[in-house]
């Protein structure tokens, strides 16, 4: 009897001890470390990449490239920006970045007076270097350190040459651009028109469009109405391609038309894949991101002074669309 009691109590103690230890192990486990604090005197370089078109394939790639390079250089980089070409927000982000005294601003160029004022005055006031990426703003107006991106003039030319190859018999071509043309778009237009001017069999019509989808659709309708014999479209702003194409296909078969654009729009890549787009200019967004961060760091570390104000040109190439789906 006495032995039984002792055995029962001992085994009870052992079992309870096991559960207690097991529970204690769970309760006192402290693998949840708070993020490590950073000493007050330690400040690494802070760069900001600001774009007007966040979450588009093109700018995502730019961001990825920049992030990779930033990680490589061991500096902090944040990608800010506005969604869907919200200029006001975009400019506000730039202003915040400048007021936050970041070490460098890499920004998608915007050819407006406000933008130029910000880069020229605010940035200079705080002594913050600005590098434009993808879209340039002339250095005289913006006082940017340099530009990293495609040669848009060359891109326009390449696209025009592709069009000439696709339409040896010639025909009418509609060029569609924004009412407020940005510097890069101007260069594209210049490239296209200069190339096509050499070929008399191809006539061009320039159509201006607003920003909204309705504006684009109206502009497309207008172009089709005015020029029933049109055979090709070149969208200088890649964002115009989607609504434009929708409008054309609403009226007639899409296939007979030759459609060209650039890769920095939201839909262009998928349209090209579907074969709706005949060809587009493929830029090198990752390289732009990487290069811009690299140049910014070179500047900040005084390794390359001054930066080439003509800009660092990244590769472009023509990509043809897949065989059109019926």
């Amino acid at each position: 009897m006495r032995k039984k009691v002792i055995v029962v109590l001992c085994s009870l103690c052992v079992v309870l001890g096991f559960f207690t230890l097991w529970s204690a192990e769970g309760a006192f486990r402290s693998d949840w470390q708070l993020p490590a604090a950073i000493p007050a005197d330690e400040e690494s370089y802070r760069l900001v990449l600001i774009t007007q078109e966040l979450e588009t394939p093109f700018w995502n790639k730019v961001g990825t490239g920049a992030m990779t390079q930033a990680a490589h250089e061991q500096v902090n980089l944040a990608v800010w920006g506005s969604y869907g070409n919200n200029r006001e927000d975009f400019l506000k982000q730039i202003e915040i970045a400048l007021h936050s005294k970041v070490d460098g601003v890499i920004v998608q160029g915007l050819d407006t007076e406000e933008f130029k004022q910000l880069t020229r005055e605010k940035a200079a006031f705080y002594g913050i270097p600005v590098i434009t990426v993808a879209n340039d703003v002339p250095v005289e107006e913006s006082l940017r350190k340099t530009f990293v991106g495609s040669d848009h003039y060359q891109a326009g030319k390449m696209l025009a040459e592709q069009l000439i190859r696709d339409m040896p018999a010639g025909g009418q071509t509609v060029l569609m651009g924004d009412i407020e043309q940005e510097y890069s778009q101007q260069q594209r237009l210049q490239g296209v028109t200069e190339s096509l001017a050499k070929h008399d069999e191809i006539s061009t019509v320039y159509v201006e469009s607003g920003k909204s989808d309705e504006d684009i659709i109206t502009a497309t309708q207008h172009a089709l109405n005015q020029n029933p014999g049109v055979q090709a479209f070149i969208a200088l702003n890649a964002n115009h391609v989607g609504p434009m194409m929708k409008e054309i296909s609403r009226r007639a078969e899409l296939e007979p038309y030759h459609l060209y654009s650039f890769d920095d729009g939201a839909e262009t890549a998928s349209l090209l894949e579907q074969g709706k787009l005949d060809a587009m200019i493929q830029q090198s967004p990752e390289l732009m991101g990487e290069k811009s961060v690299e140049l910014m760091m070179q500047w900040l570390r005084n390794e390359v002074v001054p930066l080439d104000s003509d800009g660092y040109i990244t590769d472009i190439r023509i990509v043809k669309g897949a065989v059109a789906q019926p």
Binding site: L34, P35, A37, I38, N76, H99, S100, V102
Partner: peptide
């Protein structure tokens, strides 16, 4: 606030602090 910086919010908090300075 500047002392609250840590690995995860370093960038934002530094910006924040400078923004206050600018202000």
């Amino acid at each position: 606030v500047y002392e609250l910086r840590n690995v995860e919010n370093e960038f934002v908090l530094t910006n924040y602090s400078h923004l206050i300075s600018s202000f």
